[in-house]
Amino acid sequence: MSADMAFAIEVRGLAKRFGEVAAVRQVDFAVRPGELFGFLGPNGAGKTTTINMLTGLARPDAGSIFIGGIDCVKQPRAAQHLIGVVPDESNLYPELSGFENLCFCAALYGIGKEERQRRARELLDAFDLTAAANRKFGTYSKGMKRRLTIAAGIIHRPQILFLDEPTTGIDVASARQLRMLIGGLRRDGITVFMTTHYIEEAERLCDRIAFIVDGRIVCLDSVENLLQPVQNKHLLQIACETFPGLPQELAAAFPDLSFSTEGNDRLRVEADGPIRVGPLVRFLEERQIEVSEARRIRPTLEDVFVQVTGIGINSMRKEKTGGGRS
């Protein structure tokens, strides 16, 4: 198999199992230089395992990996200088300050003292951490830790950056700030491979997205193309009390609409044409269900995801609580 330099990352037939568990099965994809590529899937889908194989922290059972044209299965450590990795958990040194951590990481890539101190200061500034520069990393908040971990991942100016669930487990404001930083990386020309289980995040940030479920890519395309099939759908969200069985009752009464619930206070209505609100509200009110609001909503990637994977949004949402959606 030949390396195609048109791609920053090229993966074919990648597979990995842990005993009985097939963590990754037959995964193929290619990431173009400068692209922000999203790897989207629920917890346990095989995202981290894939990143570990791409970065040389795990050995694939089968398949080929080319990074910057280098065959990483034959030479697992040969592409290390091209890549930066931000793991799902911050793994910097708690006893060192933010500044020292960054300088140490730069030194691992052979960057001289003056240059690494200059870059560390620059990054601390860009990531809004200057005030905490001399504090021990161990005392940082989760959001600050994540920001410093990203800074540490790019201090050696990698061509390709791997980000594993960058916004999981941090507060909403920090997550928003991080997404802005990640958007900025792409503008700087860095190829970013990012995993996430937040659909809106992937939709907002990524150029192309691969849905991964159970170790398999079920769908891969640009956000625009992914949204195409649902673009003409009409969606309505009705705020009202719901109960099990309500969607079925409604479906019987309105056969050309489809219904689902979101939590126990929202009803979702889907149709291929415009939805008439009046009859629906009347139907509900006749059953003593008070409707407080009804509004049209824009179809999102969530709808695509549900359609393509058959996985309910709720099961995706309840993964890892405390998530930084905004």
Partner: peptide, 15 residues
């Protein structure tokens, strides 16, 4: 155990 060793394994340095 604290996973900071991974950082070293990722460095472009002969093992």
């Amino acid at each position: 155990k604290s996973r900071s060793f991974e950082r070293l394994l990722l460095a472009p340095l002969p093992f």
